[in-house]
């Protein structure tokens, strides 16, 4: 095992250990924390985040950000809901397909603008965040998706399931597993790491740099679309503000999970642990009676701590005469 793999493993172990510690502390304060129904609710809470974070990890591995995912979740949820409202309930698989297609379109727009026009992703997706939210408004046409509009087939996914694990959670898990396999076992997946690690070298090696960037944004969009359907299944309704602010939580999860904001390093396992940590903190606040209003502040502080840790780690690890090109953050 290489030194970096060892280090990464250690980092993920450290994160897992921290989560375990947190769970013990919270459970010691309030035994209900470990009850089956509460654990289920934590899982359901992080379902959306876990799927979105798996895709966002791929984007961040290429040194990019996708800030438009929250709005995309809203667009796909409201679009599917509105179709059902006006044309009757869609079969669940078709509803999910429509949701993914909606997200894919947004992702492709992002990908082409960023890869072909070389526009900094953070700026472009910030613009898309509001444009897509405007589209949500247009689609909703002054209304919203109510619980009677959402097909029962969809909301059923949030209940039951094997071992009390709702199918919804399994869908998110499948997304994470697919991302894991893609990143580990396919050349395109390895290219994602290579492009983020050293874009110039990737170009010189003849790797398809723009295609890789388009691909990760397309995947991010598609998963955000899927997450819109998951949103409907989970909550059973959607307002035009659905999903807003999700992008921050998702980036927090990825960064806390150990991915570098300078691209090229990060893992699905770490990202899932990051999601779990955020879920435990959010749920723990509720169980311990801490105001929910502190949650944003905690997430913000976590992001800062994680990036500082990443920067420190990099500074220590870089040898004096390093072969790797220095990395610069692009503003």
């Amino acid at each position: 095992m290489s030194a970096v793999a060892r280090l990464a493993r250690v980092r993920e172990l450290a994160l897992a250990g921290f989560i375990a510690l947190l769970v013990i502390v919270i459970a010691a304060q309030n035994g209900d924390f470990l009850s089956g129904s509460n654990l289920r609710s934590i899982l359901l809470d992080i379902t959306l985040i876990a799927a979105l974070a798996s895709a966002q990890l791929m984007v961040m591995l290429t040194r990019n950000f996708d800030l438009s995912i929250g709005s995309t979740v809203g667009l796909s949820a409201v679009t599917v809901g509105m179709i059902c409202q006006q044309h009757g309930a869609l079969p669940t698989p078709l509803a999910y397909l429509v949701a993914v297609a909606v997200g894919l379109v947004v992702g492709l727009v992002n990908g082409f603008a960023i890869a072909r026009l070389r526009i900094p992703s953070i700026i472009f997706t910030l613009g898309m965040l509001s444009v897509v939210r405007g589209a949500v408004y247009l689609v909703a046409d002054g209304g919203q998706v109510n619980s009677e509009d959402v097909p029962a087939g969809m909301t059923d996914l949030a209940t039951g399931g094997p071992f009390g694990i709702p199918p919804l959670v399994l869908i998110a898990l499948a997304v994470a597993l697919a991302a894991f396999a893609f990143l580990r076992w396919t050349r395109s997946g390895r290219n994602v790491y290579a492009v983020g690690s050293n874009p110039d070298a990737a170009r010189l090696h003849g790797l398809p740099v723009s295609r890789t960037v388009v691909l990760v944004f397309a995947l991010s969009g598609a998963v955000a679309g899927l997450a819109g359907a998951l949103y409907l299944s989970r909550f059973g309704f959607a307002q035009i503000t659905a999903g807003s602010g999700l992008e921050l939580t998702v980036i927090a999860a990825v960064v806390v999970g150990g991915a570098s904001i300078f691209g090229g390093s990060g893992s699905i396992a770490g990202t899932l642990l990051g999601c779990l940590l955020l879920g435990v903190i959010g749920n723990g606040f509720a169980v311990l009676g801490v105001s929910q209003y502190w949650q944003d502040a905690a997430y913000g502080a976590l992001i800062l701590l994680a990036v500082i840790a990443d920067a420190r780690l990099r500074a220590v690890r870089r040898p004096a005469r390093s072969a790797a090109a220095p990395k610069e953050a692009t503003a």
């Binding site: 502040a297 992001i303 503003a331």
Partner: peptide
């Protein structure tokens, strides 16, 4: 945070964006 730790201001201010809003909420 940006100058002492050599961090990208995009991420730092994304973090403090959540932090400050959270404090206001709190």
């Amino acid at each position: 945070l940006v100058t002492r730790f050599g961090l990208s201001s995009i991420v730092v201010t994304l973090g403090t964006m959540a932090l400050f809003r959270g404090l206001a909420n709190a």
